[in-house]
Design a protein around this nucleic acid. Structure first.
Lengths: 130, 130
DNA sequence: CTAGTCTCTCCAGTAACTGGAAGGTCAAGG
DNA sequence: CCTTGACCTTCCAGTTACTGGAGAGACTAG
C-alpha cells in the first residue's frame, strides 16, 4: 500500500510517517518505480505500535527501544517492564507537579474578586519576590 | 546592574534573560557604552514576575499578556482572573489525561511478570490494533 | 601587560512534528 | 492525446522556550 493508505490504517498523519521514515524509526517496505514509499503488513504493524506507544507518552527514543524489543522474539519481559516503569515514574512526578500548581493557582483564583477593580492577588503574588 | 547580577537576583539564567530581551518580553533598562545590557529595579521586577509566571506554567505569550496587565495600574482583576482560569482548565485537562495514562499503563505493568520470558502484556497491548 | 572573567552577537540544536512550495506520477474523462 | 485532479516526492522553514558554543570585544586585578 502507499503512504496515504498506511496513514489511514495506522492512524498517523502522512507527514508523520514520512518523518518516522526520515529518522529511521520505521522504514517503508521499499519504494515503487516512481519512488513512492510502499508499506506492507509488517511495517504497518510497526506504525501502529509506535502510534500507541506515543499515545502512552513514550518518547521517540523509548519507542525505538520498544520497537527493538517488539521485533525481538527473544526479549525478556523484564526489559520492557523497566522502560514502562520509568514512564510510570515520569507520569507520577508530572502529576505531583501539576497538583502543586493547581493548588497554588486555584487558591489565588479563589481570592481574586474578578471584577473591574485593579486589585488582584494573582498579579500581586506573581510580582512578589520569592 | 549588569546581566549576571540580574540573573542572580531574578533566578533566571543569563541566556534566558538575553532571550527575553531578544523576543521583546523584558527589555533591559538600557545599554552601557560598551553595549552591555543594564537592568534596574523595574526591569528586574519584570524578570522576577516572568520567572514566577513561567513556574506556574503560563506560556510566553500569556506572560506577555500578564506583564501588560501587571504594568497597567488600571487593569481589572477580571482580566487577570480570566487568563488564570484558562490555565487552571489546562492543568485540569492535563491531570485527567495523565490519570488515564497512569491507570492503563500501571495495569499493564502489574500484569507483566518482568522475568526472562519473552511473553509481555505491555508489548502485546501496544501491538494490538485499536 | 596580561590573565581571567564578563559581555556581546550569531548560529545551531533540542523534541516531534507541521505547513508549504515546487515538481514528478498516475488514472480517468473529453 | 491532453488535461485535470489527486497523489506522491524532497526540501526548507516554523513551532516552543530555551541552551550551548564560537569568536570577539570589554573590563578588572595583579
Amino acid at each position: 500500500m502507499k503512504i496515504s493508505k498506511a496513514s489511514e490504517q495506522s492512524g498517523l498523519p502522512v507527514k508523520t510517517i514520512r518523518y518516522y521514515s526520515d529518522i529511521g524509526l520505521v522504514a517503508s517496505a521499499g519504494r515503487s518505480n516512481a519512488g513512492y514509499r510502499r508499506y506492507d503488513q509488517t511495517s504497518l504493524q510497526k506504525l501502529i505500535f509506535i502510534r500507541r506507544a506515543r499515545e502512552f507518552g513514550f518518547s521517540i527514543e523509548e519507542c525505538r527501544e520498544l520497537l527493538g524489543l517488539y521485533s525481538d522474539n527473544a526479549r525478556s519481559s523484564a526489559d520492557v517492564k523497566k522502560i514502562a516503569c520509568h514512564r510510570l515514574e515520569d507520569i507520577r512526578k508530572k502529576q505531583d507537579e501539576l497538583q502543586c500548581l493547581y493548588n497554588e493557582l486555584s487558591h489565588l483564583v479563589q481570592n481574586c474578586s474578578g471584577d473591574d477593580r485593579p486589585d488582584c492577588p494573582i498579579i500581586a503574588n506573581l510580582a512578589d519576590v520569592k
